[in-house]
Design a protein around this nucleic acid. Structure first.
Lengths: 185, 185
DNA sequence: CAGCGAACAGACAGGTCTGTCTGATGTCAA
DNA sequence: TTGACATCAGACAGACCTGTCTGTTCGCTG
């Protein structure tokens, strides 16, 4: 029938895939389910993304894009390096607690795609490298000589809090992480 | 034919399942593959474990049992609380680097089983609670008043290093974690 | 108004998944 | 020796998976 405007199907599929892949896991969700939830036919899905793998990569890229927008908001809202870094902890916590502590989509994808050469894993590395780079850039303004080590340490705290909060189904690990992060400055 | 002694099939299945589930992910491995790798029929597999879910739980329980044995070795080899805690970091690193940085089997299982009420998740909680309890017990001997906070912080470092080492395919996060752990004492 | 392209509806192929069943064959204990 | 039991071999059911294909219908653009 083609009742909808051409070009919309891709966005609708991506939105449905994001919710389903994140909530249930990537391997656990079939393309039929994604297409049905998007209100779109499978043919339109394959026309836009080529394959399920292509859709998975698009899903993670979209999520990375949204996270970068969050980082931009943090940069706009806070001036000092210390405030910006702590705001990253808050944002991370807010994202995870918003969906029942399902964890970091990129770390979950890493668990589901064991091959380090998989395109999915490249998107994950890109995302995590960008996050590390942001922390590093901020820390260099405050304490240039300790910045490298400090950025590595803060990454451990962020990721540690992310996975621990899933296991414990609680935000408490983020409070521990943030408290320790403050003392590290 | 029944060429093997009765009772062996379960152990063989568990061994094959451990290797395959850990390496490729749980959802990615079918029971046919496990049975074939174990040199056992599917009927024997179901006779021993009832279902794939049962096998998955048994796989994680077995891995937890082996990790507890590792903890016992650490306790026997080191006397001081500080040495024992640092030895846990070394053991965690050794386990992960031994298999191409595939990460913590329990955290991977958590990614694959989103429902917190799933029996799999209960095994994960049991495992992580035991680890936290061990750290806590050791720290109480050295610095009783800081022990609680310190145990939480060391858990974040351990888990953070575990997942970061997978993304980076490197042991470097463990070095960062261990260095920070030493300064926290 | 004509035509191109995107999406629709839905069947289809080929494979894999979990789980069950039947009947034969071997091991071990009583 | 005999009976119970575990396992073997392999077919089978029913569901789900990814991906393709045919023919139709609509919206937008020139």
């Amino acid at each position: 029938m083609g009742r909808t405007r051409p070009g919309d199907a891709g966005a609708k599929v991506l939105k449905a895939a994001s919710a389903l892949f994140y909530r249930d896991g990537i391997h656990a969700v079939g393309v039929d389910t994604v297409a049905a939830e998007a209100g779109v036919t499978k043919a339109a899905l394959y026309g836009n993304f080529g394959s399920k793998s292509g859709l998975v990569v698009a899903y993670l890229r979209e999520r990375d894009r949204r996270w970068q927008a969050e980082i931009d908001r943090i940069t706009a809202a806070h001036a000092g390096p210390r405030e910006r870094v702590l705001a990253v902890f808050d944002a991370y916590e807010a994202w995870l607690s918003a969906d029942g502590y399902r964890g970091c989509a990129f770390l979950n994808a890493t668990s589901e795609f064991p091959d380090p050469a998989d395109p999915v894993r490249e998107v994950v590395r890109h995302h995590k490298t960008a996050l590390h780079g942001y922390l590093l850039a901020q820390l260099r303004r405050g304490e240039p000589q300790r910045a490298g080590v400090l950025a590595d340490e803060l990454m451990l705290l962020l990721e540690g809090a992310a996975v621990t909060s899933v296991v414990a189904q609680s935000a408490q690990p983020f409070h521990t992480a943030k408290r320790l992060a403050r003392t590290l400055f």
